[in-house]
C-alpha cells in the first residue's frame, strides 16, 4: 500500500499506525503523528487503520530556541 509520509510517497506493509511506527523504528518518546492534518493520540495508534493514499505527518524532537 502506498501512503504519503511527510510529503513523500512511500510503500508500507503496515496496516495500523502502531505497525507503521514499528516499521520506521521510531523512538518511544518525543514523537507525534497526524493523519490528514489531524493529530492522532498515541492511545489510538493501534486501532487506527491506514488506507491507501493517506497523508501522514510524523514529527520528533529537534534542537531549537
Amino acid at each position: 500500500m502506498k501512503v504519503w509520509l511527510n510529503g513523500k510517497e512511500v510503500e508500507t506493509a503496515a496496516t495500523s499506525l502502531t505497525l507503521l511506527t514499528e516499521e520506521l523504528d521510531l523512538p518511544v518518546e518525543g514523537v507525534a503523528v497526524a493523519v490528514n492534518n489531524r493529530m492522532v493520540p498515541r492511545s489510538q495508534w493501534a486501532d487506527y487503520v491506514l488506507t491507501e493514499g493517506v497523508h501522514i505527518v510524523i514529527i520528533k524532537a529537534a534542537c531549537g530556541g
Binding site: L5, N6, G7, K8, V10, L24, L26, P27, E29, G30, V31, A32, V57, I58, I59, K60, A61, A62, C63, G64, G65
Partner: peptide
Amino acid sequence: VTVAMKRIELGDKEDDMLQHII
C-alpha cells in the same frame, strides 16, 4: 529548555536529542 519539532526523515539514524535533556 526549549525544544523544537521536525519531520522525521526515513532511514534517519541520528542521535535522539530528547534523551539528552529529559
